[in-house]
């Protein structure tokens, strides 16, 4: 399983909705809203599923974009 840390950049005024939607996704853990527009998120999923997962995050209403900060795949190698 890969562990991916990323920020979700939300459209103004939508951060709470986005955080709730992210928290409802079983592969994700959220770590709060920061600076009113960033939700800190960690995904735990098979590498092969990460792209699909990120596409679902992008498709959420209120998501402007995402920025990955780290990816660990040590137990997949």
């Amino acid at each position: 399983m890969a562990i991916l840390g990323f920020l979700t950049h939300t459209v103004e005024g939508k951060s709470k909705e986005v955080e709730a939607a992210l928290a409802a996704m079983p592969e994700l853990s959220t770590y709060g809203i920061h600076q009113d527009c960033y939700v800190v998120v960690v995904a735990e999923a098979d590498s092969a599923d990460l792209e699909g997962l990120m596409s679902r995050v992008h498709a959420l209403d209120g998501v402007l974009t995402t920025y990955v900060t780290s990816l660990n795949v040590e137990d997949e190698q």
Partner: peptide
């Protein structure tokens, strides 16, 4: 180990926007 890596991943994301790191 996995919790640790997850915590590190969150901390890195947070630090990228200038937030405090988790212990």
């Amino acid at each position: 180990r996995r919790d640790f890596i997850k915590g590190s991943a969150a901390a890195l994301a947070l630090s990228a926007i200038g937030g405090p790191c988790f212990a």
